[in-house]
Design a protein around this nucleic acid. Structure first.
Length: 928
RNA sequence: GGGUGUGUAGCUCAGCGGUAUGAGCACUACGUUGACAUCGUAGGGGUCACAAGUUCGAUCCUUGUCACACCCACCA
């Protein structure tokens, strides 16, 4: 029996535990793909029989925030929906080792003990990270359970686990030998606090109020002549190897070819002609520091300038400067003082500028000339672009395609720096021979063999110490988790075959470059290689778009990418700890239940718009859950059970036919919206149906039958109620899995059938005609209650009603229900409107094809009735004017579709009649 | 500088080439002894940011303007 009050805490956790741990005879849980059950061998052979999603792997250091709650809720809705359709469903779960973030957490813990990672060997430190992961790394996966995510825990993966590490090594070696991974000395973003290179995407720019410093360099051999410089970073002058001036610069071009003397260090540097120097900006002359500025680096290459590194890896100045060991701030001060003492300073101005910071460390990023490893992203992007252009991978909403091409575009995408000078991560499978020759193999033994052969003798190898960017391994997630690189023969369960390409990727648009684009590049590379090895390389130039689409369709990592917005606070501001405006999803679950939070997410998710968290609204969906709970409880109290032989086609009572067709219609719309990923519309479909149609109308209109004497009718209502209830529980399950499961279990003997695996209803087309009668009864009740309200008829007053209408059966079949709901003493059906003298003491309304008189003699508030009629007339007159204007417009009558014109005429006629009736009523008031 | 998105009720947001039956919350009034006060009924509240264009007809399509948000790039 159901508890009197809905309390999600009573059952959410126990239900989840049952889902996760209860195993069937084959040791399968309800979360596992159906193919894991041997009984299903040979099924699911077609692509459309399978459905798979890989979860965006959360950082192992992470905790569940509202963004995850949205992301995982949407995925769970799709996963549960497809699972109930009887598909072979995999929701692949796992976490990401999050190189920098995790290393920082562990280092912070060490710092509390007064230690740093350098107090340990690399191996010792990595062991400490693993220890931390074992003890504290599972927070987010525990929280996923609270949300109800139906992921397959038996297949949980970690980007550093053995299988995925193998995939990383394998693809690295492939890429290297294809020339798509290479080492290069280039200017990279250097994080001095972390002591590592980071990628462009890991750098965030912030606006800062800074200064612009103006000073001058003397010209060599020209006493008293100077070149004037403006810079925001004077301390970098020790790395200057030229001054650039535009060849078009009339004022300064005479200096080109001469040397300037770099003050303090008194080093001559050439003045070169370069278009980089804009005559309009600054002083027109630019100091060139090729080793510490991306633009200057390019200038340096054009003019073959030396590149002088002036920084240590920790960001302090090095021995190439007069201020070794000083940090940049101190060095700036020292440099300026020195310049001033030399009489070379000119002025200092306030200057608004943007400075790059490390996303993780918060340190100021320094461009630094170092040896790093790169992935040839421009090359890999070719397939990634073409696969989207031909439609093999579609973005939802479609416009994210533009964002994707914006970054991936030809000539836009930059090489991806994948080496990190960290300890925690995948160490690169690179070994160096004694003279620095590179050997790239999946393991040391193979590298050794190769090296020995190359040198003709046994040599000592040293391994590259750098690790890979975290996104390298997450870029493989869509196929590495499914068993790649083992081929199908070695992978007896054929996960790759069944689940790759995955059906859809659901993630936030903010990681479209970090992750979506990288998965496209890496997956297409790996899968294409495999495909081309079998079938040969395609000639894209000779292929149509459709042929290209077919080619890519089975090698893309996902057929679709659904990108949702960010979760923000109620005012639409980004949530952040420093602003103190974060809302903790766990707290919301504690307060309102996971189902309420989930439904909120679904209801608020509209394509292309961010979700603003609103606690009152979450509370509102808890109320919705309560409503469902009580409606089902009402059924229990009235012994509503589904008989074995119940057949909805044998239903006799209009109210039951009505609700059956409303269920069908709701399901029809729900299916359409879920298939289109219109989450908010889908949520609105079920919300409106349950609250309004089922609870408000079906239950209320059924009460007279349930409390009456007609046993056959009662039995039909009970059965229909139970039928509708079971369908509601099913189609609500993807949104609110906990309450639906609890109600499913408690309302009938389900004979071991778990709701999560129950077949999704297939009810066919709905019949509008079958709903018409009750729709009209509802119209009637609404018209009468509204009329009563407008003229202030006391709620307790039981009125006599007289109705002129076409379909008398509406009243005949639902007499008691209408009386009860509209608080009527009686209803009399008339063949024609009442004569004027018979209308004494009555008020009348004519709406929705119903002419209704209410006898309000002695009750009526005459003033209110007069106001009502006057308001009605005013409204009608306004409408009539509109109709008349439209219909007298020859263009409209000629060009608009006939149906629209006819409808306009009908409305006009109706309004005219309504107005006449209202005027009669007004006249009658005088002798009321 | 380049790009993307959003401006609809007091608030948070749906929606749509044919009069906005808009939703929830908030508000006002009334009501409630057989599911539900985590409730019910009714009501007030909108020139659909602004301007021009396309159209018989625009809140919806096009263009422009303004405001807000976000992304990318650059900043001597």
């Amino acid at each position: 029996m159901l508890e009197k009050t809905y309390n999600p805490k009573d059952f959410e956790n126990t239900i989840y535990e049952r889902w996760e741990h209860k195993e069937d005879a084959h040791g399968c849980t309800v979360f596992q793909p159906a193919m894991d059950n041997p009984e299903n061998a040979g099924k699911f052979t077609k692509k459309e029989d399978n459905f798979s999603i890989v979860i965006p792997p959360a950082n192992v250091t992470g905790y569940l925030h509202m963004g995850h709650a949205l992301d995982y809720t949407l995925q769970d809705i799709l996963v549960r929906y497809n699972r109930m359709q009887g598909k072979n469903v995999l929701w692949q779960v796992g976490t990401d080792h999050a190189g920098i973030a995790t290393q920082m957490v562990v280092e912070r813990n060490l710092a509390k003990e007064g230690k740093s990672r350098h107090d340990f060997t690399r191996e010792e430190f990595i062991n400490k990270v693993w220890e931390w992961k074992e003890h504290s790394g599972g927070t987010i996966t525990r929280q996923l359970r609270r949300l109800g995510a139906s992921v397959d825990w038996k297949r949980e993966r970690f980007t550093m686990d053995e299988g995925l590490s193998k995939a990383v090594r394998k693809i690295f070696v492939m890429l290297y030998h294809d020339g798509l991974i290479y080492k290069d000395k280039r200017l990279v973003n250097w994080d001095p606090k972390l002591g590592t290179a980071v990628s462009d995407l890991e750098v965030v720019s912030k606006d800062v109020a800074g200064k612009m410093y103006y000073y001058k360099y003397p010209i060599e051999g020209e006493e008293g002549e100077y070149i004037h410089i403006a810079t925001t970073r004077p301390e970098t002058m020790f790395g200057d190897t030229a001054v650039a001036v535009s060849a078009e610069n009339e004022k300064l071009k005479h200096l080109i070819g001469k040397n300037a003397i770099l003050p303090i260090v008194n080093r001559p540097i050439p003045i070169v002609a370069d278009a980089h120097a804009d005559p309009e900006k600054g002083t027109g002359a630019v100091k060139i520091t090729p080793a510490h500025d991306f633009n200057d680096f390019e200038v340096g290459k054009r003019h073959n300038l030396p590149m002088i590194n002036i920084l240590n890896f920790d960001g302090t100045l090095n021995d190439n400067t007069p201020f070794p060991g000083m940090d940049t701030q101190a060095a700036r001060k020292a440099t300026l003082e020195k310049l001033d003492s030399l009489g070379l300073m000119e002025k200092v101005e306030d200057h608004q500028m943007t400075i790059p910071y490390g996303e993780r460390s918060g340190a100021v990023i320094e461009p630094m000339l170092t040896d790093q490893w790169f992935v040839d992203a421009p090359k890999l992007a070719e397939d990634a672009r073409r696969a989207v252009e031909c439609g093999a991978m579609a973005f939802i909403p479609d416009n994210y395609k533009k964002t994707y091409f914006e970054w991936m575009g030809e000539g836009k995408i930059q090489p991806w720096c994948i080496s990190r000078q960290l300890w925690w991560g995948h160490q690169m499978p690179i070994w160096y021979g004694p003279d620095g020759k590179v050997f790239c193999q999946e393991n040391e033994a193979e590298a050794q063999t190769e090296a020995d052969k190359a040198y003709g003798k046994h040599v000592e190898l040293t391994r590259e110490t750098d690790v890979l960017d975290t996104w390298f391994s997450s870029g493989l997630w869509a196929f590495s988790t499914l068993g790649w690189p083992d081929d199908d023969a070695q992978n007896p369960q054929d996960y790759l075959k069944h689940f790759y390409p995955t059906s859809i990727l659901v993630t936030g648009f903010d990681i479209i470059f970090f992750w979506v684009a990288r998965m496209m590049m890496m997956s297409l590379y790996a899968m294409r290689k495999r495909k081309d090895a079998k079938f040969g390389k395609p000639d894209f130039a000779a292929m149509s778009k459709e042929e290209q689409r077919k080619y890519y369709a089975d090698i893309v990592p996902f057929a679709k990418a659904y990108l949702h917005g960010l979760v923000r606070d109620e005012q639409g501001r980004k949530m952040s700890k420093s602003k103190g405006n974060t809302v903790d999803p766990l707290e919301m679950i504690d307060k309102y239940g996971a189902d309420a939070l989930r439904f909120f997410m679904a209801a608020m998710e509209t394509q292309g718009r961010d979700v603003n968290v609103s606690e009152p609204r979450i509370a509102g969906y808890r109320n919705f859950a309560t409503k469902i709970w009580n409606a089902v409880r009402f059924g229990e109290m009235n012994s509503c059970d589904l008989p074995q032989d119940f057949d909805i086609n044998q239903i006799k009572l209009p109210i039951n036919k009505w609700v059956v067709n409303k269920v069908k219609k709701t399901l029809f719309m729900l299916d359409a919206n879920l298939q289109d990923y219109r989450f908010s519309l889908a949520a609105a479909n079920v919300y409106d149906f349950i609250w309004r149609e089922f609870c408000k109308w079906y239950i209320e209109l059924s009460k007279p039958i349930l409390y009456g004497e007609d046993e056959a009718a009662k039995a039909e209502v009970r059965a229909t109620f139970a039928w509708a209830r079971d369908n509601i529980l099913k189609f609500m399950h993807p949104f609110m899995p906990f309450i639906t499961t609890e109600l499913w279990d408690k309302t009938a003997d389900r004979k071991g059938q778990e709701l999560i695996l129950a077949p999704w209803p297939k009810l066919g087309a709905y019949d509008e005609d079958a709903m018409r009668e009750i729709d009209q009864a509802i119209d009637m009740i609404e018209v009468i209650t509204s009329l009563r309200g407008e003229v202030n008829v006391p709620a307790a007053a039981q009125l006599k009603a007289f109705v002129v209408m076409d379909n008398k059966a509406t009243v005949e079949h639902n007499y008691e229900s209408i009386c009860r709901q509209a608080r009527l003493a009686s209803i009399e059906i008339l063949d024609k409107p009442l004569e004027e003298n018979a209308q004494k003491g009555m008020i009348m309304t004519y709406e929705r094809g119903l002419m209704i008189y209410l006898n309000v003699e002695g009750i009526i508030d005459a003033a209110a009735e007069k106001a009502r009629l006057e308001k009605t007339i005013a409204e009608l007159e306004k409408n009539l004017k509109g109709y008349a204007a439209k219909l007298s417009n020859a263009n409209f009558v000629e060009k608009a579709p006939a149906a629209v014109v006819a409808e306009e005429r009908r409305r006009q006629a109706e309004a005219l009649e309504q107005k006449e009736k209202a005027e009669v009523g007004l006249k009658r008031l005088q002798h009321l």
